[in-house]
Design a protein around this nucleic acid. Structure first.
Length: 821
RNA sequence: GCCGAUGUGGCGAAAUUGGUAGACGCACCAGACUCAAAAUCUGGCGUGGUUCACCCCACGUGCCGGUUCGACUCCGGCCAUCGGCACCA
């Protein structure tokens, strides 16, 4: 029996406990049903769920439940991205153990997730910080290492002083650390990289395959990979026999206008290129450049500086001798680290040449050229020997071909993407499975010795170095090759390595023989629907795409892209601004569960805004959704004696009113099904819940006219339609109506196309495109019938009196437009 | 500077292929119920004009223009907001 009142706190708790025992949402590896993989980005266990999580997981959960009801074998897993700096920082602050801190947080958040009523297969839970997972992260590292895709090199890398570790390029946002927002500097260090640049072209090209991704994300990745087509031109150094400086340029057409050359402060041959007279000034300049933070150096407003090296190059096209300068507007890690300078046709070169009084030669002419200004537009070549008169586009090709034939140039495609720096000087990560042997050098740990476990005898109170360095047991080991005393690599892997393959592990989460079985992941992947925040547009989503391609090339799987469809959900705002602890406008999911229940939270967070747009959380909105839930419950509670699980609908014996109620149900099924299938427009789905509920309330107004079969059909249809969103409410009602199985096991409702429209419709009658009348008519009348009805409208007759009708446009089942002169 | 997205009532928004602009909800207003309040139920709710009222008329989807019988929707040109990239040669 249904109570008079609905108490979500008690009822939700009851169902949570039942579902906890039965784990009813297991995905079957061997099922005849078609598979569907619905995935949320896995959370970092920071301590508590926030509303962004609630939104993310509710969206995915509704998709998973909908697909399950449609007959799919659904994989909907959850896990924990549980390595990373916050655990270590918490450990340092509270003298706790990072593992304990992390596992405690996971336990709490898992409870919160269960209370949200998510249909997750908890048997496949993955925790990236536990050895049964990071063993395979290390194993995958070794596969990349064997394939030459993981390598160590000394390079200027991004260094965050506060986090005391290096960062990948993707983790530097506007010159600041992505995590702590402090300024990033450059340090020359020997670090591990993944060769993501090997896949630049494929990562770029395959964006076209991702039809189910938004343009915003694809554009961001496109920009980040940053492909440009240009040329390499090589210049002989006048003073040093045999030394050449190659430059990368996209403007080979301006080669006749080169008047000097610039190398980056970190350019490899810079010392050779510096004459004794200039040594002091150059060294001073390089020292200064090193001290600048990324922000200062990259500022476009900054006035350009530089100093001459004293040596020269000879421009092979003109024979002109041009000085070589060092200037930090040349970047060491893009192109060749050296730039040819054509002041008249490049803004940066122009500013620099003006400041240091360097000569300029005009080689492109076009409309609006002004000798006092830079001219970067395209035009016609002048002062360029046999190339004069050509267009810029033709000349780029011709000049590069000329250089190619004469051995001082070639065509070159350049990418902005850099290799992914994956080593971190921190404790709480997967150790890099490499040892250094005095005899054998760099050696991979034997696969059978994995995992390389994190040491536990560490002191977290140390400052300025990795706590792992304080372990007495970790560093020393023996060489896997020769058995000599050797030392371990003391770095751990970037957490983004762990999260680049977790969605593969879900497919085969308990496998202790291999990271995943090839057949099983080929069956489940790619992910059919991935849901998460836009903040991972580049980082996680690019890394995962790289991983998929790299593991495919390691012969571990057989697909090219990990995520077929991607939904990037908008932010959750509170009263118009972003929820944040510092603003104090956060909403605690626990409080919402306590006061309104999880169903209210689920319903509200899906209402109001489509998933991709920002969502504004308001207290009034929560109240409104809670009222809806109570309103629905009251309906079932009041009419429970009339509801029959085995109703019998005979369309021929229905009154007009009954028929309209049945039609409303079919219209609702159609609209809701279509809206979910079309970009998951849950906001309009919920509008339809309300309209359908209002229609049922309307139907029961006069108790004498209720047909119990019609009412049962309407109410059971509504119940199934709301069940993916209001999971507890639907289950409670269904169970109290006497059902012995779960509403969530029931198939999705079907609609009859003939019944999914109203019996009559409103014909719009226009005169010259302006509405003059609205007439109730039968469905599916012929065009001539509609025209006749429209012309007979008194309003039309009056308005057209004495005028000539030139044209009549009839849109079936919609409108008639009468055109008069 | 380049690229992408967005722009509709007081607010969140809706509107198959161009065809009733503002569904649904929030807020607000009025009424019913109540001793009263809450809850609930019923109705109203773009702007302006006209009218006692119903009706009716004009205007209205960021701005300007175009195509069309008809434009939130298509085309051209702007503006604003948000996001990404950017001394990338």
């Amino acid at each position: 029996m249904l109570d008079k009142e609905y108490y979500p706190q008690h009822i939700e708790k009851k169902w949570c406990e039942i579902w906890d025992k039965t784990n009813p949402y297991k995905a079957e590896d061997n099922s005849l049903k078609p598979k569907y993989y619905a995935l949320s980005m896995l959370p970092y266990p920071s301590g508590k769920l926030h509303m962004g999580h609630v939104r993310n997981y509710t969206i995915t959960d509704v998709i998973a439940r909908f697909k399950r009801a449609q007959g799919y074998n659904v994989l909907h897993p959850m896990g924990w991205d549980s390595f990373g700096l916050p655990a270590e920082n918490a450990a340092i602050q509270h003298h706790a153990n990072p593992q304990k801190w992390t596992l405690d947080n996971i336990a709490y958040m898992k409870k919160q997730l269960k209370m949200l009523g998510l249909s997750i297969d908890w048997d496949r839970e993955v925790t990236t910080c536990l050895p049964d997972y990071y063993k395979w992260t290390q194993w995958l590292f070794l596969q990349l290492y064997k394939k030459g895709l993981a390598y160590k090199k000394t390079a200027p890398v991004n260094w965050c002083e506060k986090c005391a570790t290096v960062l990948a390029n993707e983790q530097v946002i506007d010159g600041k650390c992505w995590r702590c927002d402090s300024e990033v500097t450059k340090k020359n260090l020997s670090q591990w990289f993944f060769k993501i640049t090997e896949y630049s072209e494929e990562l770029l090209k395959d964006l076209d395959l991702l039809k189910g991704w938004g343009d915003n994300v694809k554009t961001m990745q496109y920009n980040w990979i940053g492909k440009s087509q240009g040329s390499i031109l090589k210049f002989k150094v006048k003073e040093i026999e045999g030394l050449e400086i190659p430059v990368y340029t996209t403007r080979a057409d301006t080669a006749y206008g080169i008047t000097y050359l610039v190398v980056a402060p970190e350019y490899k041959d810079i010392e050779k290129l510096t004459t004794p007279e200039n040594k002091e000034a150059v060294e001073k300049y390089r020292e200064n450049a090193k001290k600048l933070s990324e922000i200062e150096r990259l500022s476009t407003e900054r006035i350009k500086t530089g100093t001459p090296l004293g040596t020269h190059i000879i421009n092979p096209f003109t024979g002109r001798v041009c000085p070589i300068w060092v200037a930090d507007y040349a970047l060491v890690d893009y192109g060749t680290g050296a730039v040819m300078a054509v002041p008249y046709h490049d803004e940066r070169d122009f500013d620099f040449a003006k400041k240091y009084n360097l000569p300029m030669v005009q080689v492109i002419d076009g409309e609006g050229f002004d000798k006092d200004k830079v001219y970067v537009e395209k035009g016609t070549l002048i002062n360029s020997a046999q190339f004069s008169g050509m267009s810029c586009e033709d000349a780029k090709k011709a000049i590069t071909e000329f250089a190619l034939e004469n051995g001082f140039g070639e065509f070159k495609t350049q990418y902005r993407l850099r290799d992914w720096l994956i080593s971190r000087q921190r404790y709480w990560g997967a150790p890099i499975p490499i040892v250094y042997c005095p005899n054998c050098g760099e050696v991979a740990v034997d696969e059978k010795d994995l995992p390389v476990l994190l040491p536990e005898d560490v002191d977290f109170s140390v400052q300025g170095k990795s706590p792992i360095e304080t372990s007495k047991t970790f560093r020393e080991t023996t060489c896997p090759k020769c058995g000599a005393k050797a030392v371990r690599d003391m770095d751990t892997m970037d957490t983004f390595v762990c999260s680049s393959w977790y969605y593969m592990r879900y497919a085969d989460a308990k496998n202790d023989k291999e990271c995943f079985n090839r057949d099983i992941i080929n069956k489940w992947l790619p992910v059919d629907q991935y849901v998460g925040g836009i903040e991972h547009a580049i980082l996680h989503l690019l890394y995962s795409r790289f991983f998929t391609k790299a593991l495919r090339d390691c012969n571990l799987l057989d697909f090219d892209e990990p995520f077929s469809n991607l939904l990037t959900q908008g932010m959750v705002l509170k009263d118009g601004s972003k929820m944040s602890k510092s603003k104090g406008n956060t909403v605690d999911p626990d409080e919402i569960y306590q006061n309104y229940g999880a169903d209210t939270a689920r319903l509200f967070i899906l209402s109001d805004s489509p998933p991709a747009r920002d969502f504004d959380w308001t207290d009034a909105g929560v109240e409104g959704c809670y009222k809806f839930i109570l309103r629905v419950y009251r309906l079932y509670s009041k009419y429970q004696n009339r509801i029959k699980l085995n109703y019998n609908l005979d369309m021929n014996s229905l009154s007009k009113k009954d028929e309209n109620m049945v039609r409303e149900a079919h219209i609702s099924i159609k609209k809701i099904t279509n809206d979910i299938e079309n970009e998951f427009q849950f906001n309009t789905v919920i509008s339809r819940y309300r309209e359908f509920t209002n229609a049922i309330y309307d139907y029961v107004k006069n108790e004498d006219e209720i047909n119990n079969d019609v009412l049962s059909f309407a109410l059971l249809t509504l119940l199934k339609l709301i069940s993916p969103v209001c999971v507890f409410l639907a289950e409670e009602i269904y169970s109290n109506l006497g059902a012995t199985n779960s509403i969530h096991e029931e198939a999705w409702c079907k609609y009859d196309e003939k019944l999914a429209k109203t019996s009559s419709l409103t014909l719009i009658v226009q005169l010259n495109g302006k509405i003059k009348d609205k007439i109730e008519v039968e469905q599916d009348l012929s065009n001539s019938e509609l025209e006749e009805i429209a012309k007979n409208s008194p309003k039309i007759k009056e308005a057209t009196a004495g005028k000539a009708i030139t044209k009549v446009i009839v849109v079936p089942n919609k409108l008639v437009n009468i055109v008069v002169k």
